[in-house]
């Protein structure tokens, strides 16, 4: 039994760059999603009354509403980021349910990359909304002594974001693999169903938490 928990098998080398399985699966998922999105966009532009365009409307509307609810105002960039996060993570998690597919989110490198993107977009959003000085001042409030705690909390929540997603997806995958190895065919189906739920839930949580972090940075001065 080959338990892959932290390492990614390198499939081939593209020049000096090693191409891992995670990269391939995430690329495939991204391309699939982009294809679907372009198709939906074409349908939206050509047949606005088609049910698929209604699906697209609902998708975009739900993310916009989510961001408006959490941030307090509508913010297209944030909602685009949140929607992309949710769609990518959910697609990766669902793709992990297919046999032989290694989910991209089951790799700590991917989840930490996503978490770092969120981590970086927090100050970017804060600075863009409030200006550098105002944004930096909010680290020293309510007391300058709390500045290290602010920084640590930002770092730790990024770590938690990464590890939570990774742990959930990886453990679900691991449990399914163990069950297949121990009990055999068809036995892990309930666990796989739970994994499906957990995957969607984790994608939702990741999206919500990143939106909350970014929204907190946007409205940091107003507090």
């Amino acid at each position: 039994m080959n338990l892959r928990i932290f390492g990614d098998p390198v499939l081939f080398h593209l020049g000096p760059v090693p191409v891992t399985e995670t990269m391939v699966s995430s690329t495939v998922v991204s391309l699939l999603l982009i294809t679907v999105a372009i198709t939906l966009r074409y349908i939206v532009c050509s047949h606005p009354e088609h049910w698929l365009s209604v699906v697209a409307f609902m998708t975009v509307e739900s993310f916009d509403n989510l961001v408006e609810e959490i941030v307090g105002r509508s913010h297209t960039v944030v909602s685009t980021l949140a929607g992309s996060l949710f769609l990518f993570i959910a697609a990766c998690n669902i793709a992990g349910q297919f046999p032989g597919v290694h989910p991209a989110t089951g790799s700590l490198a991917t989840t930490s990359a996503l978490a770092v993107v969120v981590f970086l977009s927090v100050p970017i959003a804060g600075i863009q909304t409030n200006g550098v000085w105002d944004y930096l001042k909010h680290y020293f409030r309510p007391n300058p002594l709390l500045m290290p705690l602010h920084v640590i909390s930002e770092l730790s929540r990024t770590l938690a974001l990464a590890v939570r997603l990774f742990g959930n997806i990886m453990s679900g995958h691991l449990v399914v693999g163990l069950l297949v190895a121990l009990a055999g065919f068809l036995v892990p189906i309930p666990i796989m169903a739970l994994d499906l739920l957990i995957g969607l839930l984790q994608a939702y949580i990741f999206t919500i938490l990143s939106t909350v972090y970014i929204g907190a940075a946007i409205s940091a001065v107003e507090e």
Binding site: S30, L33, I34, A37, I38, L40, R41, V44, C45, A56, F57, T59, V60, F63, D64, T76, V77, S79, T80, L81, G83, S84, L85, L87, F88
Partner: peptide, 14 residues
């Protein structure tokens, strides 16, 4: 992915 999705999907749909 986010950029492409934003440009090709979210913006026109919005």
């Amino acid at each position: 992915f986010a950029t492409v999705l934003g440009w090709l999907f979210f913006k026109p749909v919005r």
